[in-house]
Simulated scan of single mutants.
Amino acid sequence: MRTVGVEEEILLVDPETGDPRPLSAAIVARAALDNADGRDVFEKELHEQMLEYATAPQSDMDALGREIVRCRKEAARHAGEIGCAVAALATSPLPVRPSVGAHQRYQWMDEQYGIATREQLVLGCHVHVAVDSDEEGVAVIDRMRPWLSVISALSCNSPFWQGTDTGYASYRSRVWQRWPSAGPTEVFGSPERYREVVASMVDTGVILDEGMVYFDARLSRNYPTVEIRVSDICLHADTPVLIATLARGLVETAAREWRAGVPPAAHGVSVLRLAAWQAARAGLDDTLLHPVTMRSTPAPVVVRALLDHVADALEETGDLETARARVAHLLARGNGARTQRELLRRTGSLREVVTECVRRTQE
Protein backbone atom coordinates (compact mmCIF):
# COMPACT_ATOMS: atom_id res chain seq x y z
CA MET A 1 0.00 0.00 0.00
CA ARG A 2 1.38 3.42 -0.97
CA THR A 3 2.32 5.72 1.88
CA VAL A 4 1.10 9.31 2.01
CA GLY A 5 2.45 12.36 3.78
CA VAL A 6 0.98 15.85 4.10
CA GLU A 7 2.69 19.23 4.44
CA GLU A 8 0.62 22.18 5.62
CA GLU A 9 1.47 25.87 5.81
CA ILE A 10 -0.45 27.65 8.54
CA LEU A 11 -1.06 31.33 9.30
CA LEU A 12 0.22 32.90 12.52
CA VAL A 13 -2.16 35.51 13.93
CA ASP A 14 -2.73 37.71 16.95
CA PRO A 15 -5.33 35.90 19.11
CA GLU A 16 -7.06 39.18 19.96
CA THR A 17 -7.06 41.10 16.67
CA GLY A 18 -6.65 38.35 14.07
CA ASP A 19 -3.81 40.26 12.39
CA PRO A 20 -0.97 38.10 11.00
CA ARG A 21 2.15 38.07 13.18
CA PRO A 22 5.77 37.46 11.99
CA LEU A 23 6.75 34.92 14.65
CA SER A 24 7.66 31.75 12.77
CA ALA A 25 11.34 31.86 13.80
CA ALA A 26 10.42 32.00 17.50
CA ILE A 27 7.99 29.11 17.14
CA VAL A 28 10.48 26.93 15.24
CA ALA A 29 13.09 27.62 17.93
CA ARG A 30 10.69 26.66 20.74
CA ALA A 31 9.65 23.52 18.88
CA ALA A 32 13.29 22.49 18.41
CA LEU A 33 13.90 22.75 22.16
CA ASP A 34 10.82 20.64 22.80
CA ASN A 35 11.58 18.06 20.13
CA ALA A 36 11.68 14.80 22.05
CA ASP A 37 11.79 12.41 19.07
CA GLY A 38 14.49 14.26 17.16
CA ARG A 39 12.32 14.82 14.09
CA ASP A 40 12.00 18.36 12.76
CA VAL A 41 8.26 18.76 12.21
CA PHE A 42 8.15 22.57 11.97
CA GLU A 43 9.96 24.82 9.51
CA LYS A 44 10.07 28.50 8.60
CA GLU A 45 8.70 29.53 5.24
CA LEU A 46 9.02 32.42 2.77
CA HIS A 47 7.19 34.83 5.06
CA GLU A 48 7.56 35.14 8.80
CA GLN A 49 3.78 35.07 9.27
CA MET A 50 3.60 31.45 8.12
CA LEU A 51 4.70 28.15 9.63
CA GLU A 52 5.09 24.80 7.86
CA TYR A 53 4.80 21.35 9.33
CA ALA A 54 4.87 17.87 7.85
CA THR A 55 3.37 14.57 8.91
CA ALA A 56 5.25 11.31 8.93
CA PRO A 57 4.37 9.05 5.97
CA GLN A 58 1.33 6.91 6.68
CA SER A 59 -0.39 4.04 4.90
CA ASP A 60 -3.55 4.23 7.02
CA MET A 61 -5.77 7.27 6.46
CA ASP A 62 -7.05 7.34 10.04
CA ALA A 63 -3.46 7.46 11.26
CA LEU A 64 -2.77 10.29 8.81
CA GLY A 65 -5.75 12.18 10.19
CA ARG A 66 -4.42 11.80 13.73
CA GLU A 67 -1.02 13.08 12.57
CA ILE A 68 -2.55 16.18 11.01
CA VAL A 69 -4.52 16.93 14.16
CA ARG A 70 -1.42 16.36 16.29
CA CYS A 71 0.69 18.72 14.15
CA ARG A 72 -1.99 21.41 14.28
CA LYS A 73 -2.32 21.10 18.05
CA GLU A 74 1.44 21.21 18.53
CA ALA A 75 1.67 24.30 16.33
CA ALA A 76 -1.12 25.91 18.37
CA ARG A 77 0.62 25.03 21.63
CA HIS A 78 3.99 26.46 20.61
CA ALA A 79 2.31 29.57 19.20
CA GLY A 80 0.26 30.04 22.34
CA GLU A 81 3.38 30.01 24.49
CA ILE A 82 4.52 33.23 22.82
CA GLY A 83 1.10 34.91 22.68
CA CYS A 84 0.23 33.86 19.14
CA ALA A 85 -2.44 31.66 17.53
CA VAL A 86 -2.65 29.54 14.38
CA ALA A 87 -5.34 29.64 11.72
CA ALA A 88 -5.75 27.21 8.83
CA LEU A 89 -6.40 29.97 6.32
CA ALA A 90 -4.86 30.01 2.84
CA THR A 91 -4.80 33.83 2.77
CA SER A 92 -5.20 36.41 5.49
CA PRO A 93 -8.71 37.88 5.49
CA LEU A 94 -7.30 41.03 7.10
CA PRO A 95 -4.88 43.48 5.47
CA VAL A 96 -1.21 42.55 5.96
CA ARG A 97 2.27 43.59 4.89
CA PRO A 98 4.16 40.28 4.81
CA SER A 99 7.72 40.06 6.12
CA VAL A 100 10.10 38.10 3.89
CA GLY A 101 12.29 35.72 5.90
CA ALA A 102 15.99 36.40 6.41
CA HIS A 103 17.15 33.17 4.72
CA GLN A 104 19.47 33.81 1.76
CA ARG A 105 17.12 31.91 -0.53
CA TYR A 106 14.16 34.09 0.38
CA GLN A 107 16.21 37.25 -0.04
CA TRP A 108 17.23 36.10 -3.53
CA MET A 109 13.56 35.57 -4.37
CA ASP A 110 12.65 39.00 -3.06
CA GLU A 111 15.29 40.63 -5.26
CA GLN A 112 14.48 38.48 -8.29
CA TYR A 113 10.68 38.70 -8.28
CA GLY A 114 10.00 41.97 -6.49
CA ILE A 115 6.41 42.60 -5.46
CA ALA A 116 5.35 39.11 -6.52
CA THR A 117 7.47 37.74 -3.65
CA ARG A 118 6.27 40.29 -1.13
CA GLU A 119 2.64 39.45 -1.91
CA GLN A 120 3.09 35.68 -1.61
CA LEU A 121 1.62 35.27 1.86
CA VAL A 122 -0.39 32.27 0.67
CA LEU A 123 -0.65 28.96 2.46
CA GLY A 124 -1.00 25.59 0.79
CA CYS A 125 -1.29 21.89 1.47
CA HIS A 126 1.06 19.52 -0.36
CA VAL A 127 0.46 15.76 -0.56
CA HIS A 128 3.30 13.29 -1.12
CA VAL A 129 2.34 9.86 -2.45
CA ALA A 130 4.95 7.11 -2.73
CA VAL A 131 5.94 5.80 -6.17
CA ASP A 132 8.20 2.89 -7.09
CA SER A 133 10.46 4.76 -9.51
CA ASP A 134 10.92 7.99 -11.43
CA GLU A 135 9.49 6.20 -14.46
CA GLU A 136 6.29 5.40 -12.59
CA GLY A 137 6.24 8.89 -11.06
CA VAL A 138 6.38 10.69 -14.40
CA ALA A 139 3.77 8.35 -15.86
CA VAL A 140 1.51 9.21 -12.92
CA ILE A 141 2.07 12.96 -13.31
CA ASP A 142 1.17 12.71 -17.00
CA ARG A 143 -2.08 10.85 -16.33
CA MET A 144 -3.41 12.73 -13.30
CA ARG A 145 -3.15 16.21 -14.86
CA PRO A 146 -6.87 16.69 -15.74
CA TRP A 147 -8.05 15.69 -12.26
CA LEU A 148 -5.94 18.10 -10.21
CA SER A 149 -8.38 20.99 -10.69
CA VAL A 150 -11.02 18.92 -8.87
CA ILE A 151 -8.66 18.41 -5.93
CA SER A 152 -8.13 22.17 -5.91
CA ALA A 153 -11.89 22.83 -5.83
CA LEU A 154 -12.32 20.59 -2.79
CA SER A 155 -9.67 22.53 -0.88
CA CYS A 156 -10.66 26.15 -1.68
CA ASN A 157 -10.14 28.24 1.47
CA SER A 158 -9.01 31.74 0.45
CA PRO A 159 -11.88 34.02 -0.60
CA PHE A 160 -10.49 37.17 1.06
CA TRP A 161 -7.42 39.25 0.24
CA GLN A 162 -6.31 42.46 1.96
CA GLY A 163 -9.71 42.88 3.61
CA THR A 164 -11.79 42.34 0.46
CA ASP A 165 -13.84 39.48 -0.97
CA THR A 166 -11.99 38.57 -4.16
CA GLY A 167 -14.86 36.78 -5.86
CA TYR A 168 -12.70 33.64 -5.91
CA ALA A 169 -13.01 30.58 -3.69
CA SER A 170 -9.23 30.10 -3.91
CA TYR A 171 -7.46 33.38 -4.47
CA ARG A 172 -4.32 31.73 -3.10
CA SER A 173 -4.04 29.71 -6.28
CA ARG A 174 -4.27 32.87 -8.41
CA VAL A 175 -1.52 34.57 -6.42
CA TRP A 176 0.58 31.40 -6.65
CA GLN A 177 0.40 31.55 -10.45
CA ARG A 178 2.56 34.69 -10.35
CA TRP A 179 5.62 32.45 -9.96
CA PRO A 180 7.09 31.89 -13.43
CA SER A 181 7.36 28.12 -12.99
CA ALA A 182 3.91 27.45 -11.48
CA GLY A 183 0.99 25.62 -13.01
CA PRO A 184 0.00 22.59 -15.08
CA THR A 185 2.48 20.75 -17.26
CA GLU A 186 2.76 19.19 -20.67
CA VAL A 187 2.87 15.40 -21.05
CA PHE A 188 6.49 14.44 -20.38
CA GLY A 189 6.43 10.81 -21.48
CA SER A 190 9.60 9.74 -19.68
CA PRO A 191 11.83 10.62 -16.72
CA GLU A 192 14.51 11.71 -19.17
CA ARG A 193 12.20 14.28 -20.73
CA TYR A 194 11.04 15.44 -17.28
CA ARG A 195 14.64 16.00 -16.15
CA GLU A 196 15.47 17.71 -19.44
CA VAL A 197 12.62 20.19 -18.97
CA VAL A 198 13.57 20.88 -15.35
CA ALA A 199 17.24 21.36 -16.24
CA SER A 200 16.40 23.74 -19.07
CA MET A 201 14.26 25.81 -16.70
CA VAL A 202 17.05 26.06 -14.12
CA ASP A 203 19.59 26.90 -16.84
CA THR A 204 17.64 30.02 -17.78
CA GLY A 205 18.58 31.61 -14.45
CA VAL A 206 15.00 32.80 -13.97
CA ILE A 207 14.58 30.29 -11.14
CA LEU A 208 17.22 29.47 -8.56
CA ASP A 209 17.19 25.68 -8.63
CA GLU A 210 15.03 22.58 -9.01
CA GLY A 211 13.20 23.38 -5.77
CA MET A 212 11.62 26.35 -7.51
CA VAL A 213 10.02 24.21 -10.22
CA TYR A 214 6.48 24.74 -8.95
CA PHE A 215 4.58 22.28 -11.15
CA ASP A 216 1.06 21.33 -9.98
CA ALA A 217 2.50 17.83 -9.54
CA ARG A 218 6.20 17.05 -9.53
CA LEU A 219 8.75 14.46 -8.52
CA SER A 220 9.99 15.22 -5.02
CA ARG A 221 13.67 16.16 -4.75
CA ASN A 222 14.05 14.48 -1.37
CA TYR A 223 11.68 11.51 -1.28
CA PRO A 224 10.53 8.71 -3.64
CA THR A 225 7.17 10.42 -4.07
CA VAL A 226 4.99 12.41 -6.40
CA GLU A 227 4.17 15.74 -4.75
CA ILE A 228 0.74 17.21 -5.50
CA ARG A 229 0.76 20.97 -4.86
CA VAL A 230 -2.62 22.39 -5.92
CA SER A 231 -4.48 22.58 -2.61
CA ASP A 232 -5.14 25.43 -0.22
CA ILE A 233 -4.55 24.60 3.42
CA CYS A 234 -8.00 23.43 4.51
CA LEU A 235 -9.91 24.89 7.42
CA HIS A 236 -11.21 21.60 8.82
CA ALA A 237 -8.70 18.85 9.55
CA ASP A 238 -10.83 16.13 7.92
CA THR A 239 -10.54 17.75 4.47
CA PRO A 240 -6.79 17.17 3.96
CA VAL A 241 -7.38 13.53 4.91
CA LEU A 242 -9.97 13.28 2.13
CA ILE A 243 -7.64 15.04 -0.32
CA ALA A 244 -4.78 12.71 0.61
CA THR A 245 -7.07 9.70 0.15
CA LEU A 246 -8.14 10.88 -3.29
CA ALA A 247 -4.55 11.77 -4.20
CA ARG A 248 -3.37 8.26 -3.37
CA GLY A 249 -6.26 6.91 -5.41
CA LEU A 250 -5.26 9.11 -8.35
CA VAL A 251 -1.65 7.96 -8.18
CA GLU A 252 -2.58 4.29 -8.02
CA THR A 253 -5.16 4.63 -10.79
CA ALA A 254 -2.69 6.45 -13.03
CA ALA A 255 0.01 3.85 -12.36
CA ARG A 256 -2.38 1.06 -13.33
CA GLU A 257 -3.32 2.90 -16.53
CA TRP A 258 0.37 3.29 -17.37
CA ARG A 259 1.06 -0.41 -16.81
CA ALA A 260 -1.97 -1.27 -18.97
CA GLY A 261 -0.72 0.95 -21.79
CA VAL A 262 -3.47 3.58 -21.46
CA PRO A 263 -2.10 6.89 -22.81
CA PRO A 264 -2.49 10.20 -20.97
CA ALA A 265 -5.39 12.47 -21.88
CA ALA A 266 -4.50 14.85 -24.67
CA HIS A 267 -5.67 18.03 -22.92
CA GLY A 268 -3.18 20.83 -23.50
CA VAL A 269 -1.74 23.16 -20.88
CA SER A 270 -3.98 26.02 -22.07
CA VAL A 271 -7.15 24.04 -21.31
CA LEU A 272 -5.76 22.78 -18.01
CA ARG A 273 -5.14 26.38 -16.99
CA LEU A 274 -8.78 27.16 -17.73
CA ALA A 275 -9.88 24.22 -15.57
CA ALA A 276 -7.66 25.43 -12.73
CA TRP A 277 -9.01 28.97 -13.06
CA GLN A 278 -12.61 27.75 -12.96
CA ALA A 279 -11.91 25.64 -9.87
CA ALA A 280 -10.35 28.65 -8.14
CA ARG A 281 -13.27 30.87 -9.07
CA ALA A 282 -16.12 28.50 -8.23
CA GLY A 283 -14.84 26.03 -5.66
CA LEU A 284 -17.76 23.69 -4.99
CA ASP A 285 -20.48 26.31 -5.44
CA ASP A 286 -20.87 26.47 -9.23
CA THR A 287 -19.59 24.57 -12.25
CA LEU A 288 -16.19 22.98 -12.91
CA LEU A 289 -14.64 21.74 -16.13
CA HIS A 290 -15.15 17.98 -16.30
CA PRO A 291 -11.70 16.33 -16.53
CA VAL A 292 -12.82 14.01 -19.34
CA THR A 293 -14.81 16.37 -21.55
CA MET A 294 -13.45 19.76 -20.38
CA ARG A 295 -17.01 21.06 -20.50
CA SER A 296 -18.77 23.05 -17.79
CA THR A 297 -20.46 20.65 -15.36
CA PRO A 298 -22.01 21.10 -11.88
CA ALA A 299 -19.31 20.74 -9.23
CA PRO A 300 -20.96 17.85 -7.32
CA VAL A 301 -21.16 15.84 -10.56
CA VAL A 302 -17.47 16.43 -11.26
CA VAL A 303 -16.45 15.51 -7.70
CA ARG A 304 -18.40 12.26 -7.94
CA ALA A 305 -16.73 11.58 -11.30
CA LEU A 306 -13.39 11.81 -9.50
CA LEU A 307 -14.63 9.32 -6.92
CA ASP A 308 -15.73 6.95 -9.68
CA HIS A 309 -12.38 7.35 -11.44
CA VAL A 310 -10.43 6.19 -8.38
CA ALA A 311 -13.04 3.80 -6.95
CA ASP A 312 -11.17 0.58 -7.72
CA ALA A 313 -7.99 1.84 -6.08
CA LEU A 314 -9.88 3.08 -3.02
CA GLU A 315 -11.80 -0.19 -2.75
CA GLU A 316 -8.54 -2.09 -2.63
CA THR A 317 -7.16 0.03 0.24
CA GLY A 318 -10.47 -0.07 2.13
CA ASP A 319 -11.02 3.68 1.76
CA LEU A 320 -13.93 3.84 -0.68
CA GLU A 321 -16.90 4.03 1.69
CA THR A 322 -15.16 6.48 3.99
CA ALA A 323 -14.20 8.65 1.02
CA ARG A 324 -17.80 8.64 -0.23
CA ALA A 325 -19.05 9.69 3.20
CA ARG A 326 -16.44 12.44 3.48
CA VAL A 327 -17.24 13.74 0.01
CA ALA A 328 -20.96 13.87 0.84
CA HIS A 329 -20.18 15.70 4.08
CA LEU A 330 -17.90 18.19 2.35
CA LEU A 331 -20.42 18.92 -0.40
CA ALA A 332 -23.11 19.53 2.23
CA ARG A 333 -20.95 21.62 4.60
CA GLY A 334 -18.90 23.33 1.93
CA ASN A 335 -15.19 24.01 1.79
CA GLY A 336 -13.38 26.65 3.79
CA ALA A 337 -14.25 29.42 1.33
CA ARG A 338 -17.95 28.84 1.85
CA THR A 339 -17.48 28.68 5.62
CA GLN A 340 -15.53 31.95 5.72
CA ARG A 341 -18.16 33.77 3.69
CA GLU A 342 -20.95 32.40 5.86
CA LEU A 343 -19.09 33.57 8.96
CA LEU A 344 -18.73 37.06 7.48
CA ARG A 345 -22.43 37.22 6.63
CA ARG A 346 -23.29 36.18 10.18
CA THR A 347 -20.84 38.38 12.07
CA GLY A 348 -20.16 41.25 9.67
CA SER A 349 -16.52 41.24 10.78
CA LEU A 350 -13.42 39.75 9.17
CA ARG A 351 -11.78 39.80 12.60
CA GLU A 352 -14.55 37.54 13.86
CA VAL A 353 -13.98 35.31 10.83
CA VAL A 354 -10.33 34.87 11.83
CA THR A 355 -11.24 34.27 15.48
CA GLU A 356 -13.68 31.52 14.59
CA CYS A 357 -11.23 29.98 12.12
CA VAL A 358 -8.60 29.82 14.86
CA ARG A 359 -11.06 27.80 16.92
CA ARG A 360 -11.97 25.48 14.06
CA THR A 361 -8.33 24.91 13.17
CA GLN A 362 -7.82 23.18 16.50
CA GLU A 363 -11.01 21.11 16.50
Results as ranks from 00 to 15, higher is better:
19 D>M: 03
317 T>I: 09
218 R>S: 12
280 A>L: 03
10 I>D: 01
82 I>C: 07
58 Q>I: 03
81 E>F: 06
295 R>W: 13
348 G>K: 13
278 Q>E: 15
291 P>C: 12
279 A>Y: 03
170 S>N: 05
312 D>K: 12
66 R>M: 11
154 L>V: 05
230 V>T: 14
57 P>S: 05
175 V>S: 00
277 W>N: 05
170 S>C: 06
241 V>F: 14
45 E>M: 08
235 L>R: 03
280 A>S: 15
328 A>P: 11
209 D>H: 10
122 V>Q: 00
313 A>F: 02
170 S>H: 05
226 V>S: 04
138 V>S: 10
214 Y>E: 06
167 G>I: 07
61 M>S: 14
254 A>K: 02
124 G>R: 05
156 C>M: 11
243 I>D: 00
95 P>S: 01
305 A>P: 09
330 L>Q: 03
242 L>S: 11
282 A>T: 11
304 R>T: 13
301 V>H: 12
321 E>N: 13
312 D>F: 15
93 P>M: 04
158 S>A: 01
152 S>H: 13
291 P>K: 09
357 C>M: 06
225 T>H: 03
228 I>D: 02
265 A>N: 07
116 A>V: 12
86 V>D: 04
224 P>N: 04
292 V>R: 13
348 G>F: 09
74 E>C: 11
264 P>G: 01
170 S>L: 08
234 C>E: 15
87 A>Q: 01
7 E>V: 11
36 A>M: 09
105 R>M: 05
331 L>N: 03
150 V>H: 02
7 E>I: 06
141 I>G: 04
286 D>Q: 12
39 R>K: 14
93 P>Q: 03
270 S>H: 13
25 A>Y: 03
310 V>R: 06
305 A>D: 15
283 G>Q: 06
331 L>I: 14
229 R>H: 04
278 Q>Y: 10
13 V>K: 00
112 Q>F: 06
17 T>E: 08
361 T>R: 01
283 G>I: 09
176 W>P: 01
206 V>N: 09
292 V>E: 14
316 E>N: 13
82 I>Y: 07
154 L>Y: 13
269 V>C: 12
51 L>V: 10
61 M>C: 05
58 Q>D: 12
7 E>Q: 09
346 R>L: 15
173 S>T: 07
263 P>H: 05
130 A>Y: 09
78 H>N: 11
118 R>F: 00
1 M>E: 11
98 P>H: 00
80 G>A: 08
205 G>C: 12
362 Q>R: 15
198 V>P: 01
81 E>Y: 07
52 E>W: 01
225 T>Y: 04
241 V>L: 14
344 L>C: 10
324 R>N: 10
203 D>S: 15
180 P>D: 10
